[in-house]
Design a protein around this nucleic acid. Structure first.
Length: 200
DNA sequence: CAGCGGATGTGCT
DNA sequence: GCACATCCGCTGG
């Protein structure tokens, strides 16, 4: 867990779309209470902007739940949805400007059997191919919302490898039928072309 | 394999 | 009340 490999604050403190694209190939690390480190490579993200993005939780103003989206970059924003599931986001932009990237899918890398156990022994390809699935696999819940990914010993991101433009796919975000047309059709979902680890 | 209903915290439409 | 940045398990073919 060398600190050198950890992404610095500056990686996150920039416009959300660029951060969403560059998060592909980075490695999400979850260190459990027993020191087990679970790692997965990010293969799918979605950008959620601020006031002008009708699909974003931030578009309806700051609430207790969404407060991390308005805070300093490099923190986690974890929310609970559908009475059952969690979703993990990385906060972007400067302090006071809302923005976050939803991490939608991971390629399991280390301690895969532990992740699989967290997922009731699903097939490997179904361990972390969805935003709520990866949270279950990595034991991420709302106790981690607001966590500083730059200094946390429980949750952070490592540099991994950059992904070239030639294998980055851009599509519309999913599950936001309620949003305005312009936001529904914006190509703000980024995924690794041809990866077997992306969501359905 | 497709389709449907259930799970139920949070902030509003 | 209802919809929601979702997933699971059960059903019928």
């Amino acid at each position: 867990m060398s600190a050198q490999r950890r992404l610095p604050r500056q990686f996150y403190e920039r416009p959300t779309l660029g951060a969403a694209r560059d998060l592909l190939g980075r490695v999400l690390v979850r260190r459990l209470a027993d020191s087990t480190e679970l790692r997965g490579r990010i293969v799918e993200t979605e950008a959620y902007l601020g006031a002008n993005d009708s699909a974003s939780h931030a578009s309806r103003g700051k609430t207790e739940r969404t407060a991390p989206m308005f805070g300093p970059a490099g923190h986690a924003y974890v929310y609970f949805i559908y009475g059952m599931h969690h979703c993990f986001n990385v906060v972007t932009e400067s302090d006071g400007v809302a923005g976050a990237v939803l991490v939608r899918a991971l390629e399991p890398l280390t301690n895969v059997e532990r992740m699989r156990a967290n997922r009731r022994n699903k097939r490997p390809s179904e361990v972390s191919n969805g935003p709520a699935k990866l949270c279950e696999a990595l034991a991420i819940d709302t106790s981690l919302t607001g966590e500083d990914l730059v200094s946390s010993e429980r949750l952070w991101l490592e540099r991994g490898h950059s992904i070239p433009d030639s294998v980055v796919e851009r599509t519309a975000r999913v599950g936001i039928d309620y949003a305005d047309e312009v936001d529904r059709t914006a190509l703000w979902r980024f995924s690794l072309k041809g990866s077997e680890w992306v969501s359905q």
